[in-house]
Write a protein that binds this DNA or RNA. Structure first.
Length: 474
DNA sequence: CTATGGCACGGATT
DNA sequence: AATCCGTGCCATAG
């Protein structure tokens, strides 16, 4: 099967191949933009809005039954692959515009790890929001970074929606009091202060905590008890107690389960949420032994085809414009064919990944088998750069509804980090990095002590001496 | 002396 | 050719 497809690839003309490759490099959103601009430019192209499957709302081709709904056949080894469109999700839900649960009933299915924070908070404050405040809240929530901090100035929100800054502040204030306390703060410092304030309403807090955060945040971050005590004019014991209180009760990055390494290395740039390029799900959701179904999503609401009117007109045409029209027609043909090839190539890749990484897909990070793009390329009989293009910038939604970048399938350290997390989560006493390294070695992950430190940091796990039986999850 | 982070090198990967 | 990643060495903090 693969052989046939790759042979097809080889027989393509160079123009065709070039276009296929450039389309392959695009993710679903970029592809959508590209196609729409071509649709506007080229009259030979047409978007046909076909009828929908009454059950799953996908458009149907021809007169046959819906290929997605009618029970797909496949085995554990041979996942089923579809190239399909989805019409049931409002485009706007993905573009960071206003989202509200009742507006997009299926949205929760499409929420990425990061964006689920937004919905979680929205659910808490939705009842308290005036209708006019909803867009403000949506704007703020969709601008949170992965740490739960607000990545844009509140003033910008006010300007955008033409409302008074105080209106935005009022919404923001309510958001900051939602569950991960302090979300929506602009800086770690502000987040800490908000948490302190909230905490102060229900229990006693050290009187100097506020000043310590406001004026000596660096010392807190570096755990410099000595310097802090000196600066505040208190004893080292008092200083240590203060630091412990703050570190145990407050969190500069509200959405992180643990204090990461917050004195150096700014948190990574906020991930941009997109609808996934593909879905991987179980043929029967409740049966983990059923075959996997891979669905390549198309950005189009309908079926791209040659404009029949255009073809008829061209056939009857005699004047000087004919060559130009002919050219348009050729271009349109080429695009449609290339688009098909692009989707085929993606499907091929995903089918392979689904088969090879079935355990990872169903059972999580720990079971990712090491894989390089080069290996995949060799197996599929395509060039390495083809695989690179296909993987770059794309995302897939797994059966657990998480949307992950395709690159993650090639992350060699992922299972090790998962193992590390689970060791730390279960440890009785904090283990040092070298102890962790030994543990990992016995589990079949021979990595250097130095590397443990790196992974720890990536996972946001504190060094041993700062961990005190704080249960780790996530 | 032990634990951990910074820097930089070299090999693999893209 | 450029980039990423694991690792070794060294400095520093405790």
């Amino acid at each position: 099967m693969y052989q046939i497809q790759s042979q097809e690839l080889r027989t393509l003309t160079t123009a065709h191949l070039a276009q296929t490759m450039s389309l392959l490099a695009l993710n679903i959103e970029e592809l959508g933009e590209k196609i729409h601009s071509l649709l506007a430019k080229n009259p030979a192209l047409e978007l046909e809005e076909s009828r929908r499957c009454p059950q799953c709302l996908r458009p149907l081709r021809g007169n046959g039954p819906c290929p997605v709904c009618s029970h797909p056949t496949g085995s554990n080894d041979e996942p089923v692959v579809f190239i399909s469109h989805r019409w049931d999700i409002p485009e706007r839900a993905f573009t960071g515009g206003s989202i509200s649960p009742d507006e997009a009933p299926g949205l929760d299915e499409y929420v990425s790890e990061e964006r689920s924070l937004a919905l979680y908070i929205l659910q808490q404050i939705a009842p308290a929001l005036a209708p006019a405040e909803r867009p403000l809240a949506a704007h703020i929530l969709t601008s949170l970074d992965e740490d739960g901090l607000l990545s844009i100035p509140p003033l910008e929100v006010a300007r955008y929606h033409h409302v008074l800054p105080s209106r935005v502040e009022s919404v923001l204030h309510r958001i900051q009091r939602c569950d991960p306390p302090g979300v929506g703060a602009s800086t770690p410092r502000e987040a800490l202060l908000i948490q302190l304030e909230i905490l102060g309403e229900s229990r006693e807090v050290p009187p100097l905590a506020r000043r310590a955060i406001e004026e000596h945040l660096e010392h807190l971050g570096r755990y410099q008890v000595h310097e802090l005590s000196l600066a505040l004019g208190i004893s080292e014991a008092e200083g240590a107690a203060l630091v412990r209180f703050i570190r145990e009760n407050l969190n500069p990055y509200p959405a992180r389960a643990h204090w990461g390494d917050w004195h150096h290395g700014a948190p990574a740039a906020a991930p941009v949420y997109r609808r996934p390029d593909a879905l991987i799900r179980l043929a029967s959701p409740n049966n983990p032994d059923s075959p996997l179904v891979v669905e390549i999503l198309s950005p189009l609401r309908g079926q791209l085809r040659l404009n029949p009117l255009f073809r008829r007109a061209l056939a009857e045409m005699e004047d000087a414009r004919r060559p130009a029209w002919q050219k348009d027609l050729e271009r349109a043909r080429l695009l449609i064919k290339s688009l098909g090839q692009r989707n085929q190539a993606l499907a091929q890749l995903l089918r392979y990944l689904a088969r090879k990484q079935r355990r990872f897909i169903l059972q999580g990070d720990l079971y990712l088998t090491p894989l390089t793009r080069a290996q995949v390329a060799a197996f599929l009989g395509v060039h390495e750069s083809t695989v690179s293009r296909a993987v770059a910038g794309k995302t897939v939604q797994l059966p657990n509804r998480r949307i992950i970048p395709l690159e993650r399938f090639f992350d060699r350290s992922l299972p090790v980090r998962a193992a590390l997390r689970s060791i730390v989560a279960q440890e009785e006493k904090p283990l040092s990095d070298s102890q962790l390294a030994n543990r990992l070695k016995t589990l079949g992950y021979p990595i250097a002590r130095r590397t443990v430190a790196k992974y720890r940091q990536m996972e946001g796990i504190l060094p041993a001496r700062l961990r005190h039986g704080i249960a780790s999850h996530i």
